[in-house]
């Protein structure tokens, strides 16, 4: 189609896609690219001069939080992917009332925004919350000494609650594309259930498992609401919370941006993978002239 836009003998004029794309490009450049570059520039700036002091300060004050953030991310992305695979395998291989019901219900958390999830967890995981009460009633917890969950454990529960359904959606979607004949062929060749899972299902679906891992990983690094409302300023907390503190209480954009750059670095591998994957997909599906 693009060829018919420009007349061969006509005067040179701007092709229409320039006008179509201009607002979007301009908006993203001003509202995204500019602040993105600024986050690097400002992280190396102190009182208008080049300095690495922000990084030094960020590491000195927040090295525990940086480690904590990394551990939370690593643990939860692994957990969500692992449980995502297990549940998806279960859903793929079992057709029963139980699996059908769970398949209908598991998606709900995906649609609930993080701020509401945070509030739910806030009340659910509280020392006097419904979880502790329930565990107390069944005798698993002494209510005089309830579980303290506004920490790594509670944060992980919150992430798991919101993100496992997401990994299941992606991974189970991949499993559904695998035709039954592959499983039946393996079975007729004498493979046992666990061999079918390990040798057939998971390798055939490795790309969507990797996609789930990548998406969950980068999402956890960037999540502010859940740690902010569950842990807040207690130590250790995540760097997203620290950034908010730095900005809100001290108006210290230098250290905030240094921490921001740390969060970029933390996702650099997954970000590059994400970009490559999507750009490849976009090229494959590009229409022909």
């Amino acid at each position: 189609m693009s060829d018919s836009v420009i007349g061969r003998k006509g005067a040179v004029r701007l092709p229409s896609y320039v006008f179509l794309l201009f607002p979007a490009v301009a908006f993203i450049l001003i509202m995204y690219a500019y602040p993105f570059i600024l986050s690097f520039v400002k992280s190396f700036e102190l009182d208008g001069a080049f300095s690495t002091a922000n990084y030094k300060k960020a590491v000195d004050l927040y090295y525990k939080d940086i480690t904590f953030t990394f551990l939370v991310t690593l643990f939860n992305s692994t957990l969500a992917t692992l449980l995502g695979v297990l549940l998806s395998v279960y859903f793929r291989l079992n057709d029963s009332f139980i699996s059908r019901t769970l398949i209908k219900l598991y998606r709900i958390p995906i649609f609930i925004p993080f701020v509401v999830v945070a509030q739910m967890m806030n009340s659910f995981l509280a020392p006097h919350g419904i979880l502790n009460l329930f565990l107390g009633k069944v005798g698993l917890v002494n209510l005089d000494n309830p579980l303290q969950l506004f920490n790594f454990a509670g944060l992980s529960f919150g992430f798991a609650w919101k993100l496992i359904p997401f990994t299941v959606m992606i991974i189970f979607g991949g499993f559904q594309m695998i035709d039954n004949s592959y499983i039946e062929a393996a079975r007729s060749a004498g493979a046992k259930l666990h061999q079918i899972i390990i040798k057939i299902l998971i390798p055939m679906n490795s790309s969507s498992i990797l996609v789930a891992l990548v998406l969950v990983y980068s999402q956890i690094v960037g999540t502010f609401t859940l740690p902010y409302m569950l842990i807040g300023g207690k130590i250790p907390t995540t760097i997203t919370v620290d950034i908010a503190h730095r900005v809100n209480y001290y108006r210290d954009f230098g250290v905030a941006n240094a921490l921001g750059v740390f969060s970029y670095i933390m996702v650099i591998v997954t970000a590059v993978y994400y970009l490559k994957m999507n750009m490849r997909d976009a090229k494959i599906s590009h229409p022909q002239g």
């Binding site: 060829d3 018919s4 007349g7 061969r8 002239g289």
Partner: peptide, 10 residues
């Protein structure tokens, strides 16, 4: 496609 006009011959 050149005859239809969806492509312009050079």
């Amino acid at each position: 496609r050149c005859v239809t006009g969806f492509l312009n011959p050079e």
